[in-house]
Design a protein around this nucleic acid. Structure first.
Lengths: 217, 217
DNA sequence: TAGATTGTTAATCGATTAACAATC
DNA sequence: TAGATTGTTAATCGATTAACAATC
């Protein structure tokens, strides 16, 4: 019955890029595109594009290519961007507030309901229409309001305790901005944004280039 | 002469994680660790750990394992975290300010010198000791102050014009937070943080789980 | 020395690219 | 129909894992 082959993460992580470029083509009024043309603007090989899209069944048509709108909507559907997810942000510092002020719900289904913080100076405030609650009330709030997803934006010292709390709730997913790997979240989907990891890679690449230059001498 | 084999990005992107876990071990006072023990805590296979580290020459010692401090310092060196990079942040909105307030220079060499924005209400302000300049003056500022790196935190509509300006300066690297792929930066190292891409993957994964559940029924 | 564990080669696995028959 | 382009299989490439000789 379950004949759906598991899609590899390599493919999944390319989908948002397809989504972005197809959005752009759609905005430009482009009706159809071949894998070869798409390859030129998106930077994947035409072969890879056809392989990727075929994981999800026949979007294209021989001799014609892909209908831009159909493909765009298809990928939107695969990414489940029309699903809504009730979301809270934990940690109302700079990053938490930055995420709170971004209109995620314009392109995806993440609807931010509230923020939580441990700092008494922040608790009780309202930023951009979102209330900041005491972290003590997090667990109850999640259950009462059937929250699906949490964005973790606490300092790294607090992140694991938050994860421990969340693991005992019905939360389904976590977008983790703290610079650690959270443990004990077996049935919860976790997507990490390790900013300092990314910055360290930039640091490496900056230096790698310098090394190559000095080697050439 | 150039016998240095190119290290693959797959390896490079694991290095920050080694760095984090070794930092932790160091803080705990652990002196030595085998690939097998490290495997247990970091989640890579012992074989992969040995392969990864061997890309950079002999950190370990047969029968003993790895000296934690030596390995930590070695990876710090490979990531060039002691190098300093004079950095500006372009776009002083929520994300720009969040990045400005984070102490990146505690673990890496990125030293933030200034912010830039197009909004007259922000230009002239000082946040956490950092001045916000008019974006008109960006190019001159970079040359006069020998800036190495720019963090781009503008809305997506502005990002490519910023890239165009930067491409004509001596800037070496860009940490790009705008949700597009920047063009025309041939000799500049670009590290992207596509937050909405990451969120879309979370959306997919949340739904994938749901699909599997319904299949089981 | 015996035991442990690396460094490194070989085997496997998975992802990307190439090729081409199917078909619009 | 002829030309174009997909869907899909086969070939290649690269990354991960396994195995084991080297050696501390």
């Amino acid at each position: 019955m379950n004949d759906k082959k598991k899609i590899s993460m390599a493919v999944i992580r390319r989908l948002p890029k397809y989504h972005r470029y197809l959005q752009e083509l759609l905005d430009k009024g482009v009706m159809r595109i071949s894998s070869k043309e798409l390859s030129k603007i998106i930077g994947f090989t035409a072969s890879q594009i056809r392989q990727d899209l075929n994981n999800f069944g026949g979007f294209g048509q021989q001799g014609y290519g892909y209908n831009v709108q159909e493909l765009f909507l298809g990928i939107q559907e695969i990414l489940a961007l029309k699903q809504t997810y009730k979301t809270v942000i934990i940690g109302a510092g700079n990053m938490g507030q930055a995420l709170a002020n971004y209109p995620w719900n314009q392109t995806s289904g993440f609807e931010i309901q509230a923020l939580f913080d441990i700092n008494p100076k922040l608790v009780g405030l309202t930023i951009h229409g979102l209330h900041i609650y005491d972290i003590e009330t997090l667990s109850d709030y999640i259950q009462e309001n059937q929250i699906n997803v949490a964005f973790i934006c606490t300092p790294k010292e607090r992140a694991q305790e938050i994860a421990d709390i969340l693991s005992k709730t019905s939360i389904q997913g976590i977008w983790n901005f703290s610079p650690i790997d959270l443990d004990g979240l077996d049935d919860i989907v976790v997507e990490n944004v390790h900013l300092s990891d990314s910055l360290f890679v930039l640091s490496y690449l900056l230096n790698e280039d310098a090394d190559e230059e000095s080697e050439r001498r």
